[in-house]
Amino acid sequence: MIGRIRGILIEKQAPEVLIEAGGVGYDIQIPMTSFYQLPDVGREAIIYTHFVVREDAQLLFGFANKSERSLFRELIKANGVGPKMALTIMSGMSVEQFIQCVNFEDVSSLVKLPGVGKKTAERLVVEMRDRLKNIALTATEHVSLPSEQQSIESTFVSLNDSKQEALSALLALGYKNAQAMQVIKAVYQDDMSSEQLIREALRAMA
């Protein structure tokens, strides 16, 4: 099992990155909380990973630290939560914030995340309560320094690079095109990087 990758960050297009280690390039899907902590392209990064093997695909998920990976592993054990939803949850809140939601039974914060309905949120609060003890907080352990598709494609043409990357990331996380565009336009400021724009958009939708 692949548990950690140390290599050069070749590409980063949220929510995916490409890291080259030992002459091999690894495509890794990561939550936005980890994405924010990545170094610049061309620099070395260390990412903790979780490898998923399915009949139709082999997927590698990455995290800034062990606590994020632990939360991901516990989330995908929950009824009705797959890797994609787990990444969406972790992109919308930190490990500490998720633990707080569970401890205080804050269902309202969870249902604001795309794809998380009230029943799913309530189930998460119940199922995750006993699993939180398996998550060791290590916040200092960061990484190193189809009809709708046509409208989405036409939207990209009118956006600058940072807006395109932000829209792509939000769509990959499960947000609807119209919702994502509205928030991006509301929070965008001149010279904003894509990472800053994604962060502000997610914060505005929280």
Rank of each mutant, 00 (worst) to 15 (best):
R129G: 03
E16F: 11
L75A: 02
V143A: 13
A78M: 09
K163R: 15
E148G: 14
P31R: 05
S108Q: 10
G117H: 04
V116C: 05
F104I: 00
D190G: 09
A178I: 05
R54E: 10
D161S: 14
E127K: 04
V41M: 06
G42P: 05
R131Y: 05
M128I: 02
I47F: 07
Q164V: 09
L167I: 06
K84Y: 04
Y26V: 06
R43E: 14
Q164M: 11
R54T: 10
A201M: 02
E16N: 12
I19H: 01
S162K: 03
L197H: 10
A139E: 14
A78V: 11
I28S: 07
E20I: 01
S194R: 08
I30C: 07
I28E: 09
F156P: 06
E96F: 00
Q196G: 10
E68A: 00
G3F: 14
M128K: 03
I28Q: 09
Y48W: 14
L171T: 10
R203Y: 12
D27I: 03
G174V: 01
V126N: 01
S94R: 03
A204Y: 12
L9V: 13
M93N: 06
L71W: 00
F72G: 02
S193R: 08
A14H: 11
S154Y: 07
R199F: 13
P114R: 04
L171H: 12
L9G: 15
A57D: 15
K176Q: 13
V116P: 07
G23W: 04
I5T: 13
R4A: 13
G42I: 07
I47S: 07
A14M: 09
T33M: 07
L124V: 06
V111I: 15
I47P: 07
L38I: 04
Q97S: 10
G3W: 12
L167Y: 06
V52L: 13
E55L: 05
Y36M: 11
L202F: 09
S158R: 09
L9D: 15
E200G: 04
M181G: 02
V183Q: 10
H50V: 08
I30T: 08
K12V: 07
Q149K: 15
